[in-house]
């Protein structure tokens, strides 16, 4: 169980030529993911490390019935690659590339509205349904099957918190890294919608950060439509406000909501908030026992 990925998932890799892509494709296969092919234009018909190669994505889809594509293209080629996936009607595209141009993403977002594909990322670390299937670059051994659905903007924060959950023997149904860019293919709402319907997920954990409006939007959505308990943490509430850091689109910092503001909105919308990252696992554990979720 879990969302988006399970034992029946069939994965292809887009851009297997880089050593990074090869390493992570092998890694996914070792975790148990069914890797059915890869796309490298010009090398179609060959086999690389046991994986059949195709020239085009639609050819790969037709021959392998792939249900998810893991993308390792350089940022300049991502627009083209995702358009090709959409044309081939790949149901789920997971893009790990960082540094995709903003206006390429704006264009893609409007196209994805009418497409049969769902995009996760860019700069996503991927998705994992522990014990069943992993598509992405995350270290598989920190995850454990269970009942908490985790969705995070940042990949590194996801690892940190999940590894703490696993240490406390709190397993996860599915973990999703949305990517930390300004414009992303799927947002919190797209994911928690699925968690709400998923039988294995008993509690939802949201890991947000400063920048953008995604956390505010999901807070209002939760209030209206989500019946399962939700825990939320927003990284950066102790950050001095007048400086910009990292990749979080902080440049327009007078135009965005602070972490503190996001936490306030979560609280107003009856979400359980956590202010310090070392208290997250504790809070989740307490809720599980108090509400007898498992």
């Amino acid at each position: 169980m879990g969302i988006l990925l399970d034992r029946n998932t069939r994965m292809i890799t887009i851009g297997l030529n880089s050593s990074l892509a090869q390493f992570h494709t092998t890694n996914c296969r070792e975790y148990g993911t069914n890797v059915v092919g890869a796309v490298i234009p010009g090398l179609g018909g060959t086999i690389k490390e046991g994986v059949p190669i195709f020239n085009t994505i639609s050819h790969a889809k037709r021959n392998t019935l792939a249900s998810v594509a893991m993308m390792f293209l350089p940022p300049q080629l991502v627009l083209d690659g995702i358009l090709e996936c959409i044309e081939a009607e790949i149901p789920l595209i997971i893009c790990t590339t960082t540094g995709v141009p903003l206006h390429d993403m704006l264009k893609l977002k409007s196209i994805l509205l009418n497409a049969k594909s769902q995009l996760i990322g860019p700069s996503s670390v991927g998705i994992i349904t522990p014990g069943e299937c992993k598509v992405g670059v995350m270290p598989g051994f920190i995850f454990m099957p269970g009942n908490v659905g985790v969705v995070s903007r940042s990949g590194s924060l996801l690892y940190e918190i999940v590894s703490e959950l696993t240490k406390q023997e709190i397993g996860q149904s599915t973990c999703v890294g949305l990517g930390g860019d300004n414009v992303i293919g799927s947002d919190f709402i797209d994911i928690i919608k699925l968690f709400e319907k998923d039988y294995a997920t008993k509690l939802i954990l949201i890991l947000g950060e400063i920048g953008g409006n995604y956390e505010i939007d999901v807070a209002h959505y939760i209030k209206k439509y989500i019946s399962k308990p939700v825990v939320a943490y927003v990284a950066g509430s102790m950050m001095p406000r007048d400086r910009q850091v990292g990749h979080s689109g902080m440049e327009i910092n007078t135009l965005i909501h602070s972490a503190e503001k996001k936490l306030e909105v979560f609280e107003e919308c009856a979400v359980n908030i956590v202010r310090s990252p070392d208290k997250i696992a504790q809070k989740v554990k307490k809720l599980i026992y108090d509400k007898e979720l498992i």
Partner: peptide, 14 residues
């Protein structure tokens, strides 16, 4: 990663 960095700052300053 910015996310983990921000979380560290939160933790240290808390």
């Amino acid at each position: 990663g910015t996310g983990i960095g921000l979380a560290l700052v939160d933790l240290i300053r808390h």
